[in-house]
Amino acid sequence: MAGVEREHDKAVLVDTTIADSDLTRDEIIARNIKVVEAHFHNETPDLVQAAIQLYADEVTWEAPTRGIVMDNRDDIRAAYEGIFRTVTYRSFIPLRRFATEQFVFDDQIAHLTVVGDEMPNLPYPKGTDMSVRLAHVFEMKDGKIVREIAYEMWRKGGRSQCSRFHPR
Results as ranks from 00 to 15, higher is better:
residue 8 H to D: 04
residue 13 L to C: 01
residue 168 R to A: 10
residue 49 Q to P: 00
residue 146 V to H: 08
residue 64 P to W: 07
residue 103 F to I: 06
residue 84 F to I: 14
residue 1 M to H: 10
residue 99 A to N: 05
residue 134 L to R: 04
residue 61 W to T: 03
residue 18 I to D: 00
residue 65 T to M: 05
residue 160 S to A: 12
residue 168 R to V: 11
residue 116 G to K: 07
residue 128 T to S: 15
residue 55 Y to R: 09
residue 135 A to Q: 05
residue 164 R to N: 07
residue 1 M to N: 09
residue 118 E to L: 07
residue 36 V to S: 04
residue 143 G to Y: 12
residue 51 A to P: 05
residue 25 R to T: 11
residue 123 P to M: 01
residue 78 A to E: 14
residue 141 K to N: 14
residue 131 S to D: 10
residue 130 M to K: 02
residue 52 I to D: 07
residue 83 I to K: 03
residue 101 E to H: 02
residue 111 H to P: 04
residue 38 A to W: 06
residue 92 F to N: 06
residue 112 L to V: 06
residue 164 R to K: 04
residue 149 I to N: 03
residue 75 D to H: 10
residue 34 K to R: 14
residue 54 L to D: 02
residue 166 H to R: 10
residue 46 D to K: 14
residue 12 V to R: 14
residue 134 L to S: 03
residue 128 T to G: 00
residue 157 G to H: 01
residue 129 D to P: 12
residue 15 D to R: 04
residue 85 R to C: 04
residue 41 H to L: 05
residue 74 D to G: 00
residue 87 V to I: 15
residue 8 H to F: 00
residue 14 V to G: 07
residue 153 M to T: 14
residue 153 M to W: 03
residue 17 T to A: 12
residue 52 I to N: 07
residue 113 T to G: 02
residue 159 R to C: 00
residue 67 G to T: 10
residue 69 V to C: 11
residue 131 S to N: 11
residue 76 I to H: 04
residue 28 I to T: 11
residue 113 T to P: 01
residue 109 I to A: 04
residue 45 P to F: 07
residue 155 R to K: 09
residue 127 G to W: 03
residue 3 G to Q: 13
residue 46 D to Y: 09
residue 101 E to R: 15
residue 57 D to Q: 13
residue 154 W to H: 12
residue 123 P to N: 04
residue 42 N to M: 10
residue 107 D to E: 13
residue 102 Q to P: 00
residue 46 D to L: 14
residue 130 M to W: 06
residue 10 K to S: 15
residue 51 A to Y: 05
residue 5 E to W: 05
residue 20 D to Y: 05
residue 83 I to H: 07
residue 123 P to V: 01
residue 110 A to W: 09
residue 120 P to G: 12
residue 9 D to Q: 07
residue 33 I to S: 06
residue 132 V to T: 09
residue 6 R to V: 15
residue 50 A to C: 00
residue 112 L to H: 06
residue 54 L to C: 01
residue 67 G to P: 08
residue 30 A to E: 15
residue 5 E to K: 06
residue 80 Y to D: 06
residue 23 L to F: 03
residue 19 A to R: 14
residue 60 T to R: 15
residue 168 R to I: 10
residue 56 A to R: 02
residue 95 L to T: 02
residue 121 N to A: 14
residue 60 T to K: 13
residue 97 R to V: 11
residue 97 R to S: 12
residue 97 R to N: 08
residue 134 L to G: 05
residue 17 T to F: 00
residue 61 W to C: 10
residue 159 R to G: 03
residue 141 K to S: 12
residue 139 E to Y: 05
residue 82 G to C: 08
residue 32 N to K: 08
residue 155 R to Q: 11
residue 76 I to F: 08
residue 140 M to C: 01
residue 73 R to T: 08
residue 165 F to W: 07
residue 152 E to L: 11
residue 81 E to S: 09
residue 165 F to H: 11
residue 5 E to T: 12
residue 88 T to R: 14
residue 85 R to M: 00
residue 17 T to H: 12
